[in-house]
Design a protein around this nucleic acid. Sequence first.
DNA 1: ATAAAACCTATAACAAAGATGGGGTAATTA
DNA 2: TAATTACCCCATCTTTGTTATAGGTTTTAT
Lengths: 138, 138
Amino acid sequence: MLSKKTKYAFHALTYLGKHRDQKTVLIQDISEEYGISHKFLENILLELKKAGILGSKKGKGGGYYLIKEPKDVALSKVIRLLDGPIALLPCVSLNYYEPCVECKSEAACGLNKVMIQVRDEMLKVLENKTLADILDKE
Amino acid sequence: MLSKKTKYAFHALTYLGKHRDQKTVLIQDISEEYGISHKFLENILLELKKAGILGSKKGKGGGYYLIKEPKDVALSKVIRLLDGPIALLPCVSLNYYEPCVECKSEAACGLNKVMIQVRDEMLKVLENKTLADILDKE
DNA sequence: ATAAAACCTATAACAAAGATGGGGTAATTA
DNA sequence: TAATTACCCCATCTTTGTTATAGGTTTTAT
């Protein structure tokens, strides 16, 4: 399951996507829309900004806005950013790899090999579905 | 990511699958093979037994054994048993459904709709891959 | 100058996972 | 009868991760 952080990130991105006509959107607006703590959301939006998905403007009249096109924001990117690995085991993660301590030889581990296949199938979906798909269905 | 519990369950099932020629396998043997605490593994094997995947025999010469054919033990079954939901959000889980509190209308939620698609793609893989696939690669 | 708003860091609070240990009971074999 | 081994319930403890909050700073429009 995704963490709430990641779910909130998707909500925020959806909201920003729906309000692309206006220059900026306040944290406040998003936090009220979804009942998310203002401070909690602040951290999330900041991470999305650092990842180059959002832009922001300080001071009066400031706020957040989408930098990327919705079709260029893959679900996988958001998940990895806030939740970490997509793979089901650390030993098959592309971005957060760690060996399994109990495993004598990865090359001889059937579980490892099957989980690589599972990972690749998951990535086929999560890298191709984007924020645009979410917006299309709102 | 899968919990260690689930990973250990897969290890145990793999071990049992590789030793189907012998009548029973001791908890001890599996826990030593993978360096898993005996007590921790005990609980896992018990759950697998209650789910009808394993059988057991008490007393001297006792132990655990596979009841099901490896090809009939889907990854999804083991994951759901020990880890819970496969879906990425509670509101799209088939077996552990819960509504999202922040969501006014599920029908109008684009995130919900996309995550249903993701879930179905994941299930395509996890319901078709089985213990047999793991054993084939050992 | 003032108010608005994002930015930044730290940390508290809480929950879940992981691991361990005790103390048994029940079934089975030899 | 004795030894073996799964079964069961519990309690605890540590570690980890998630969720949330606090308090201050910097930037900007008016």
